[in-house]
C-alpha cells in the first residue's frame, strides 16, 4: 500500500511538472497581449505596461523557469494555488465552487451508464447469438462515432426544444433556492438529465461491449457449467455466478474513468450552461490564465491518480485471486 501511495505521489509530481512546462509552451504570449491592452487603455509606455501586466497576473517570464518552478512548488506545498489572472480571485475558490457540480454530474453519468451498460452487456453475453448481440454492437459503434457536442445539440433539440420535456440550460431553476428543499432537489435532478444523457449515451455502449467481453470469457468457466447442471434459475446464475465474477475488472475501469471524467467536459458543460470545471477550463485556456489552468490540470491529475489508486484497491478487495 505504501509503495502504491508513493508511486501515486510520484505520478502527481511528474504530471504537474509536465503541466507547468506545457502551459508555458502554449502558443500566444498572454503577457504581451495584456501589456498591449494596458498600453492602449491606460496610456502607458510598453515597458511600464509590461511591468504592470506581470504584477497583475503574478507571472514573470523573465524570471528563470527553474526559479518559477520552485516558487510554484513552494506555494503549492502551502496550499496556495495563486489568483486567477482573469477573475482576480483565488484559484482555490473557483475550484471549490465548480468541483461539486462536476462531481455531481459525472458521478451520476458514470453510475447510470455503468449500471445500464454492464447489465446490457451481461444479458447480451448470456443470450449469445440473439438479436441483442448485433444490436448492441451497432448501438455502440453509432454512439461512439457521434461527437459529444453534436450529441448534446441533438438531445437539446429533441428533448428540450421539440418535446419540451426538459429544461434547456443550467444546473437548477433560478426560481428555486439552493438547499435541502424539494423544489430545488427536483429542479436539480431535472436539469441533470440532459447533461447526464449526453455523457452516458456513448458510455453505455462502451460499458456494454466491455461487460459482454468479460462475461463471455467467464461463461466458459466450470463453475457456471456446474451451476447450470444443478438446475439453478437463469437469473441466479446471471447475478451470482456470471455477474459477480465478470464485474471485477469493470469496477476497476469505472474508478479510472471517474477520474478522467472529473476533468470535466468543456463542450457539454458549455452547451448546457453547467457551472462545472469545464467552463472555467475553456475560459482559462482562452485567456491564458496560467494559475487557473494549472489549478484545473492539477485537479484533473489528482482525480485520475486517485481513480487509479481506488481501482487498484477495489480490485484487490474484490478479487481474492489478487490477494494470493
Amino acid at each position: 500500500m505504501k509503495k502504491r501511495l508513493l508511486l501515486s505521489l510520484l505520478t502527481v509530481w511528474v504530471a504537474l511538472t509536465f503541466t507547468f512546462i506545457l502551459v508555458r509552451q502554449m502558443p500566444g504570449d498572454f503577457l504581451h497581449t495584456l501589456a498591449l491592452q494596458l498600453q492602449n487603455t491606460h496610456g502607458l509606455a510598453y515597458a511600464q505596461a509590461r511591468e504592470m501586466a506581470k504584477l497583475q497576473i503574478c507571472y514573470d517570464p523573465d524570471e528563470p523557469i527553474l526559479k518559477q518552478y520552485f516558487h510554484y512548488l513552494s506555494n503549492l506545498a502551502q496550499g496556495e494555488l495563486g489568483r486567477s489572472t482573469t477573475y482576480r480571485i483565488p484559484v482555490l475558490d473557483i475550484l471549490l465552487s465548480a468541483l461539486p457540480w462536476t462531481v455531481f454530474i459525472t458521478f451520476l453519468a458514470a453510475g447510470f451508464s455503468f449500471v445500464v451498460g454492464t447489465t446490457l452487456g451481461f444479458w447480451t453475453a448470456w443470450r449469445r447469438g440473439s438479436w441483442l448481440d448485433p444490436a448492441l454492437t451497432f448501438y455502440a459503434t453509432l454512439t461512439q462515432a457521434i461527437p459529444d457536442f453534436l450529441l448534446g445539440v441533438m438531445l437539446l433539440l429533441v428533448l428540450g426544444v421539440q418535446l419540451q420535456w426538459l429544461p434547456l440550460r443550467g444546473a437548477y431553476s433560478p426560481e428555486t433556492e439552493p438547499g435541502l428543499n424539494l423544489p430545488f432537489l427536483a429542479s436539480l435532478l431535472q436539469h441533470a438529465v440532459l447533461p447526464v444523457l449526453a455523457f452516458s449515451i456513448p458510455a453505455v455502449g462502451s460499458w456494454a461491449l466491455s461487460a459482454k467481453a468479460t462475461a463471455t470469457s467467464v461463461l466458459g468457466e466450470d463453475y457456471l457449467l456446474v451451476a447450470r447442471a444443478k438446475g439453478l434459475k437463469s437469473w441466479r446464475i446471471l447475478r451470482d455466478y456470471l455477474g459477480r465474477n465478470a464485474i471485477i475488472p469493470l469496477i476497476s475501469n469505472l474508478a479510472t474513468s471517474l477520474g478522467a471524467l472529473l476533468g470535466g467536459s468543456m463542450l457539454i458543460e458549455t452547451l448546457f450552461g453547467f457551472p462545472g470545471l469545464g467552463y472555467f477550463l475553456a475560459q482559462s485556456i482562452g485567456t491564458r490564465d496560467y494559475p487557473l489552468m494549472q489549478g484545473l490540470f492539477l485537479l484533473s491529475t489528482l482525480a485520475i491518480v486517485a481513480g487509479n489508486l481506488a481501482a487498484e484497491i477495489l480490485s484487490h478487495q474484490l478479487d481474492p485471486r489478487s490477494r494470493r
Binding site: 437539446l156 426544444v161 434547456l168 458549455t270 450552461g273
Partner: peptide, 16 residues
C-alpha cells in the same frame, strides 16, 4: 437573461 454559450444554443432557444 439566459447564458449565450454558443450560437447553436441560441438558435435552439429561438426555435423553442
Amino acid at each position: 437573461i439566459a447564458r449565450w454559450g454558443r450560437n447553436e444554443v441560441i438558435w435552439s432557444y429561438l426555435y423553442a
